[in-house]
Amino acid sequence: MGLVDDAEQPGFVTTTLDKLLRWGRSRSMWPVNAGIACCSLEMMTTGAARYDFDRFGIMFRSSPRQADVMIVPGPITKKMAPIVLRVYNQMAEPRWVIAMGSCAISGGTFVDSYNVLPGCDTILPVDVYIPGCPPRPEALLYGCLQLRKLISETSMIGSSRKTLYVPPVLPPEWSAELLAEYGAGDQPGYADVTTSAPEVVEAAYHSADAPVAADGPAAPDVQEAGDDEV
């Protein structure tokens, strides 16, 4: 990246397409507007005038089709889990997940409940964990800025980014239809964790990495991505 020092045609910047995409994506994180539980009140506060998400380009979208970040603000009950997963699957790739608060991280105080998942990372690939019960709006902002850093450091071209859904744990109460719809497809990168052997699941999980590893330079530009000012 650099300025073209040409007096006749000023104002040009050279960069790579990858860096340009990362720059744009990291500065327009649009979370899906899915307030699951009480942490969503802090999420709303963060979006309101006093803390003001919008100044970072973070704007809530009401449709998952327009969103690329999912903030999970609360415990996921087993009845809610298929809906959360459906919303996640409806989001356009690449997509990211923020687990906000103790319940979304580990189930929190409901971890022993018969009806609550022990953390949303049992069904979603979480990128940023924000502890707190609930986290303050500053903490959520900090978490979002960490995610922005992550996005701006992750290459999107020939990406090794895992966006395929491979659930480590599925609730045993889920019916076979739900498993067929959400978990156990035939696509590469998918594995049915309820029936497959652990090594099969492991292989499927890493098969999303395989093209990049075969192409030679794996995970490009991670080190030199500190300069995100394009």
Partner: peptide, 21 residues
């Protein structure tokens, strides 16, 4: 009504044992 339709447990019965962590 409260649990998923596919649930098979009756969690407020005394015989119901919570999952071990």
């Amino acid at each position: 009504i409260l649990q998923p339709e596919s649930s098979t447990i009756f969690p407020l019965r005394r015989s119901f044992v919570l999952e071990q962590r």
